[in-house]
Design a protein around this nucleic acid. Structure first.
Lengths: 206, 206
DNA sequence: CATCGAGTGGACGAGATCGTCCAATCGGCC
DNA sequence: GGCCGATTGGACGATCTCGTCCACTCGATG
């Protein structure tokens, strides 16, 4: 049972540990993160790590949670604009630009963690599922706004399309990562967007 | 430099090792596969493993290659039928049935390996990219047959749609895995299929 | 100032893992 | 049978990793 920090100093230490762990996971993968490395990088000592976490698994779950939070924070603005067709295209452009900037490496942080953790740690799986839920909710509220405005085909099931868009993003990012080609995610999501636009749609891809 | 086996016995040993490694990776993930475990399971000895492989990384790449081969073999039949609208729906049904049968666990073997290996082993990344290429080619030739028959919207770019279908499958399988819900992959791929059918399309989902 | 719990530092042992090494065995071939 | 390279068995040391342990410091509070 990990003890929650009660003082500001304790909270800072716990956060240093999680951030160091998240950085190492992003850089080397879950398997490449050793607790000794985390302690060296934080910096912190073993006793601090085991003071705030049950052990490796518990720390990995905390990493999953903060990673989901970071991903959602980074895209909060552009995801908030996903409520018009233009906003949807801006979202896609931002996604592609980010992948190009990273050299098409790394894929989606949440998706990558999913491949490494979902099958082996129930707690981490639930944390990642929660991240996906929040992401999909962002799409859904934006799509609902478009539907209310009449920008979508009549009869569009907004919740279903939101799931399809998220799947297209994740699949596209995976292909981008494996093929080292940032255009893959654009192709994947162009499909999802083309599907939702009404007959009077303007602009295919930029 | 690993030496290729020259005798039938050597080839059998090498194959035993790869299959044992692939099984352990599927069961416990890449990080959970120890070389000692592989030797115990094969069965084989350390010297045999290092006789046929450079080391851990080389073995992982061999696992990636055989995993791609296995996945393509398993779906060869139903993927070969992906050249009519009905065949596409049968493909989707088979995919969903397989996920339900597995309890929505494991996701796509290739996609899971991608998340664990693509970023850290160039050779494995290339092996997985080759697997995706073969998979996408299967979709593309089927879609081209449909286009030639006039089953697709006029002006459909077959290669692009093939990429979108593969992305939808991968994204859908990832959501299925994380959410432990086999319907996710059906939703994801319904979107990709709905997009390609001509106006006189029949049947949405089953 | 004395007390006390939260927080800290880092040594330590148990065990796992990797990769190396060498001697033994197998099986085709002269 | 004798030879020889391919193949095999498994011990071994070096290294890494995890998690435990205990003594220590910090800082709020009475």
């Amino acid at each position: 049972m990990p003890s929650e920090p009660t003082t500001a100093r304790g909270r800072a230490t716990r956060e240093r540990i999680v951030l160091a762990a998240a950085g190492l996971v992003a850089e080397r993968g879950v398997a490449g993160m050793s607790l000794d490395d985390v302690c060296a990088q934080a910096p912190a000592s073993k006793s601090q790590l085991y003071h705030y976490f049950d052990g490796r698994d518990d720390l990995q779950q905390a990493v999953a949670e903060t990673t989901c939070g970071t991903v959602m924070d980074v895209q909060a603005d552009v995801l908030g604009g996903f409520d018009t067709l233009d906003g949807a295209e801006r979202y896609l452009d931002a996604l592609v630009a980010l992948q190009e900037q990273r050299g098409a490496r790394g894929g989606c942080p949440i998706g990558s963690l999913a491949g490494q953790l979902a099958e082996h740690h129930e707690g981490s799986r639930l944390a990642l599922a929660d991240g996906f839920d929040r992401w999909e909710t962002g799409f859904r509220v934006g799509l609902q706004a478009m539907a209310d405005r009449g920008d979508l085909r009549a009869g569009t099931e907004v919740a279903t399309v939101a799931t399809q868009v998220l799947a297209a993003v994740q699949g596209g990012l995976l292909l981008t990562q494996v093929r080292r080609d940032a255009r893959q995610v654009r192709i994947a999501m162009d499909g999802a967007l083309a599907q939702i636009t009404a007959a009077r749609r303007h602009a295919g891809r930029s």
